[in-house]
Simulated assay, not measured.
Amino acid sequence: METNLGNGGRSPGPGGNDGGDKDCIKSMVDQGSVESRRFYLSRKTALEMLKDRGYNVDESEITRSLTEFRSLFGDNPELERLRISATLRSNPSKKILVVFMGKNEIRKATIFALRGDISKENLSGLILVLQSKMNSFARKELESFAFKVEEFQISDLYVNITKHYLMPKHEVLTAEEKQKLLNKYDIEAKQLPRMLKSDPVARYYGVEKGQVVKVTYSQEFCELHEQYRWVV
């Protein structure tokens, strides 16, 4: 005899109902806002990026859970509170600031207001995390800043690409290490394989044209070997 369970073919939970299943599923569903999750993921990657660039970053900031993030910043975080300020470990006088921008189109007036807002920060670098497009007038205004300004779309920071198990290890050589490498093989930098400055990994480490990046491959299916790439 065929038995009709009457609930999509699933056996009832304890007490003749499927409450146990519902509780299990509910525990796996994110009950918080999408906005807070977006900011949590992107801010965490930004913190990891600064640390990998040699900046002082509190480890507790990186390991903070989503629940802890929401408890601290709320379900609809204020953008100003999400800002990250860090100094370079090798030179504490060098300071960088990460600013999360709003959803409206970024115009010249937006950048002008930002300039006034951060004028007392004494920065050597600025990273803007964007949620919208930036028009050409705003971009032109950024060129007048006295320090390097970088831009990342917030979606670019949802995942830290350098943490992927297939991604080889990248290390930016110092000027001294670069020269030592060139002397060792009696070559010029332009003879090395190239890496575009626009490459996602190059952008992650904030490298400039002319720098050299050491790439180490060590996956199970690949013998351990190193390559050096010249950033162009």
Rank of each mutant, 00 (worst) to 15 (best):
residue 188 E to T: 14
residue 108 K to I: 11
residue 201 V to I: 14
residue 198 S to L: 09
residue 44 K to M: 08
residue 146 A to Y: 14
residue 163 K to G: 04
residue 204 Y to L: 04
residue 62 I to Q: 05
residue 167 M to R: 11
residue 203 R to L: 14
residue 216 T to E: 15
residue 61 E to W: 08
residue 1 M to S: 01
residue 91 N to E: 12
residue 127 I to W: 00
residue 21 D to G: 10
residue 177 E to L: 06
residue 228 Y to I: 04
residue 130 L to G: 03
residue 99 V to P: 02
residue 1 M to F: 05
residue 141 E to I: 00
residue 199 D to I: 02
residue 114 L to S: 00
residue 195 M to A: 03
residue 59 E to W: 01
residue 68 E to R: 08
residue 76 N to I: 14
residue 164 H to K: 15
residue 33 S to K: 07
residue 42 S to E: 02
residue 184 K to E: 13
residue 82 L to E: 02
residue 132 S to H: 06
residue 222 C to T: 11
residue 211 Q to A: 02
residue 167 M to L: 06
residue 9 G to S: 07
residue 147 F to W: 12
residue 72 L to I: 11
residue 103 K to L: 07
residue 184 K to W: 03
residue 130 L to E: 04
residue 114 L to K: 03
residue 106 I to W: 01
residue 136 S to P: 00
residue 135 N to Q: 12
residue 140 K to M: 07
residue 137 F to R: 13
residue 105 E to K: 12
residue 116 G to A: 00
residue 112 F to V: 03
residue 64 R to Y: 13
residue 194 R to M: 06
residue 127 I to D: 00
residue 128 L to P: 06
residue 119 S to V: 07
residue 183 N to G: 10
residue 228 Y to K: 01
residue 122 N to R: 00
residue 226 E to N: 09
residue 211 Q to G: 03
residue 74 G to V: 13
residue 36 S to R: 09
residue 44 K to W: 09
residue 1 M to L: 02
residue 205 Y to P: 10
residue 232 V to N: 12
residue 131 Q to A: 06
residue 217 Y to E: 15
residue 144 S to C: 12
residue 136 S to H: 09
residue 113 A to H: 09
residue 91 N to M: 04
residue 204 Y to F: 13
residue 4 N to Y: 06
residue 109 A to D: 12
residue 145 F to I: 03
